[in-house]
């Protein structure tokens, strides 16, 4: 449990750090009312045409779909990789897993998902325009 408390402390410090910077700049910075092009979106010095809120490309959506699959894969790899180093010693249920066996299990798991990546590749999902 203590390791999670450490994460919590880090998160808290992060929030305070960013929050303090924002509050301090709000307090310390001189404030001028909006005149002219102050609220325009920044386009490298060019005059912006249209709104900054644009529609994203559908390509992002397909990328997100593929990403989601490997995200779920990573979640299941987490607990397994945590015990990888202790392979060879007895588990809670008493059976002993050989390191080679564990390695083959993981290889099969990843190979099947590598095939998924290969499928996406062949279907040209990974190509950008």
């Amino acid at each position: 449990m203590t390791e999670y408390i450490i994460i919590g402390v880090f998160a808290l410090v992060g929030i305070l750090f960013a929050g303090a910077a924002m509050v301090f700049s709000r307090l310390a910075a001189p404030r001028f009312p909006d005149v002219g092009k102050k609220l325009n979106s920044y386009e490298s010095g060019e005059d912006a045409i249209g709104s900054a809120r644009i529609q994203f490309k559908i390509g992002y959506y397909l990328f997100a779909l593929v990403f989601l699959v490997f995200d779920v894969e990573a979640v299941f790899l987490f607990p397994v990789l945590g015990v990888l180093r202790s392979a060879g010693s007895a588990t809670a249920s008493g059976s002993i897993l050989s390191p080679l066996f564990v390695w083959c299990e993981l290889l099969l798991f990843i190979a099947i998902l590598a095939f998924a990546l290969f499928y996406a590749w062949k279907k040209k999902v990974l190509e950008w325009e």
Binding site: L62, L65, V66, V69, V72, E73, F76, F78, P79, V80, L81, G82, V83, L84, A87, T91, A92, S93, S95, L97, V102, E105, L108, F109, I110, I112, L113, F115, A116, Y119, A120, K123, V125
Partner: peptide
């Protein structure tokens, strides 16, 4: 993690997860 790698535990479901994910991705695409 130990249970997922244990043949007496959840090894088969663990490997089936990757097959399920593969099917999900093919369907989604």
């Amino acid at each position: 993690g130990q249970k997922l790698l244990d043949p007496k535990g959840f090894l088969i479901p663990f490997e089936l997860i990757s097959v399920l994910l593969l099917a999900a991705m093919v369907g989604a695409i």
